[in-house]
Design a protein around this nucleic acid. Structure first.
Length: 464
RNA sequence: GGCGGCGUGGCCGAGUGGUUUAGGCAGGGGCCUGCAAAGCCCCGUACCCCGGUUCGAAUCCGGGCGCCGCCUCCA
């Protein structure tokens, strides 16, 4: 039984599904006006891992994640660069998917775009007005949060303190500082859609509630996102659903920050690091492993050193894959279904440990530790001549790693002919016990970027 | 100001009222090896400070110090 922390109750509790065997989850996606950063990488990895674990458990998962392709930042960016909003969103959405693929994040089941849902959003806003919970001002339509029962559930603090802390805005026709915009009237030259309450564009909080309910239905199972979305974004999505009388998410899951020098990494602080840049230089699996080794609700520090640390750890797993000629279970880009249930031959106690760890609020750190333990057991058994036991442990390690989306593979780049010739020459030298020549050739190969190991069949080359 | 979180061995980073070690990286010693690499074994006797509860606390409670976050666009 999977238990997850639920922001609405501020506790870890069992995930109770709307329909047995079926999981519906919605994860707030990016606003595509810039390249993705490390924070985007973290939340997509966290929820990818959750999704994969649900799949591993044999559940059907519908995973919806939106693309926000209309918003103030996009308009601003387009104006700055003298091009259309569409050109901006097209470029950055492409960069987004490229990064997701490099991270090995499974594509969502559905990827709704805000601009495809404007009609529905207009209907929702009109309905909220008709119900008397939304009102017009000179610049748009706002939700009257005082009319929403239970507003503040996700914020985790008294409404009064939220009000006290709310920024005082210049144009204040709002009835409460907590009221939020559902529809923004268009200024001249801005993208706009017709609506009974004036041409304009939807507010950010409106798109997610409309798209999630449309694609997943009332009372879907899990709604996820970064911590900062708890309030006001998710609170406000929920408020609209509540005002409509529709059951919303059953379980709220929020992941922790990426931290730089002890501070939250964010666009407003200007200390963010591009995910695209990271992936251009490093193995995407290293970032996944880094994310897996900490708890999803804890902050993680991402630096060159912590990435390098993860890369070294990955080498250990790749070496295991090489030693045991393990096939990458994710080679086809898919996911792993429960090895035991599916009849795969795995170490049952290791699988049990893995499941206990993940069932406990997705403790990927403990699950990952188990995988490294399996690696040691596999190597150890092999050294002791227990081939069957070794292979069982190794295979289990690879499958469980893959269940978390971590491909373990030899990762060997095929050596070029010249290097192979040098390796063959070295074998000849070794056969002739010409150690000086053999060492010399190792140095040459090393300079060509190969780690040289003496296997039973002779010189083995692998990329350093 | 309101609310919340954190402080673990050289580094990253889990976890927990005592019994069994998180795990990884780096470092030291050993085995293996022609020498290495990979692998295996051993090692550092960690838990911010001060009180309290308890047979026993790093883990619970109180106080202190330090750091961080949310309340505002933000994953």
């Amino acid at each position: 039984m999977l238990r997850l922390h639920d922001t609405a109750t501020a506790s870890v509790r069992p995930v109770e599904l709307r329909e047995p065997g079926q999981v519906s989850m919605y994860v707030c996606g990016p606003t595509v006006y810039d390249y993705p950063h490390l924070g985007h990488g973290r939340f997509t990895l966290v929820f990818d891992v959750l999704r994969r674990y649900l799949l591993f458990l044999g559940l059907d998962v519908t995973y919806v994640s939106n693309i926000t392709d209309i918003d103030d930042n996009i308009i601003k960016r387009a104006a700055e660069e003298g091009r259309s909003e569409e050109e901006v969103t097209e470029e950055y959405e492409a960069a987004w998917w490229e990064a997701m693929d490099a991270l090995g994040v499974l594509r969502p089941t559905a990827t709704p775009h805000a601009t495809d849902y404007v009609d529905d959003m207009v209907s929702l806003v009109g309905d909220l007005m008709a119900r008397g919970v939304a009102y017009e001002t000179s610049d748009g339509v706002y939700l009257d949060v005082d009319k929403v029962p239970g507003y503040g559930l996700l914020a985790g603090q008294p409404l009064d303190s939220l009000r006290a802390g709310a920024r005082v805005e210049g144009n204040d026709e709002k009835r409460s500082p907590l009221d939020f915009v559902l529809w923004k009237r268009a200024k001249p030259g801005e993208p706009q859609w017709a609506a009974p309450f004036g041409a304009g564009r939807p507010g950010w909080h409106t798109e997610c509630v409309v798209m999630s309910l449309d694609l997943l239905g009332d009372g879907f199972d899990i709604h996820g996102g970064g911590q900062d979305l708890k309030f006001p974004h998710h609170e406000n999505e929920r408020a609209q659903a509540v005002a409509e009388g529709r059951p919303f998410a059953r379980h709220w899951v929020h992941n922790g920050w990426v931290v730089v020098d002890g501070e939250k990494m964010s666009k407003s602080l200007g200390n963010f690091t591009s995910l695209t840049d990271l992936l251009a230089q490093r193995d995407g699996r290293a970032y996944r492993l880094l994310v897996l080794r900490s708890h999803y609700r804890s902050p993680i520090e991402v630096t060159a050193a912590t990435i390098a640390d993860a890369e070294e750890a990955l080498v250990r797993l790749d070496n295991l894959a090489r030693r045991f000629s393990l096939a990458d279970p994710l080679a086809d880009g898919g996911y792993v279904v429960d090895g035991v249930g599916a009849g795969a031959d795995l170490d049952p106690s290791a699988v049990e440990r893995f499941r206990l760890a993940l069932d406990d609020d997705l403790d990927t750190a403990a699950a990952t530790a188990g995988i490294f333990d399996l690696a040691r057991r596999a190597n150890s058994a092999m050294d002791a001549g227990d081939e069957a036991g070794a292979e069982l442990a190794a295979r289990t390690a690879a499958v469980l790693a893959a269940a978390l989306g971590l491909a373990v593979r030899p990762a060997d780049v095929a050596p070029d002919d010249e290097s192979l010739a040098l390796a063959a020459e070295r074998d000849a030298a070794r056969a002739a016990r010409d150690w000086a020549r053999a060492d010399e050739l190792r140095a040459v190969l090393s300079e060509r970027g190969w780690a040289v190991e003496d296997g039973q069949a002779g010189t083995v080359l692998r990329r350093r």
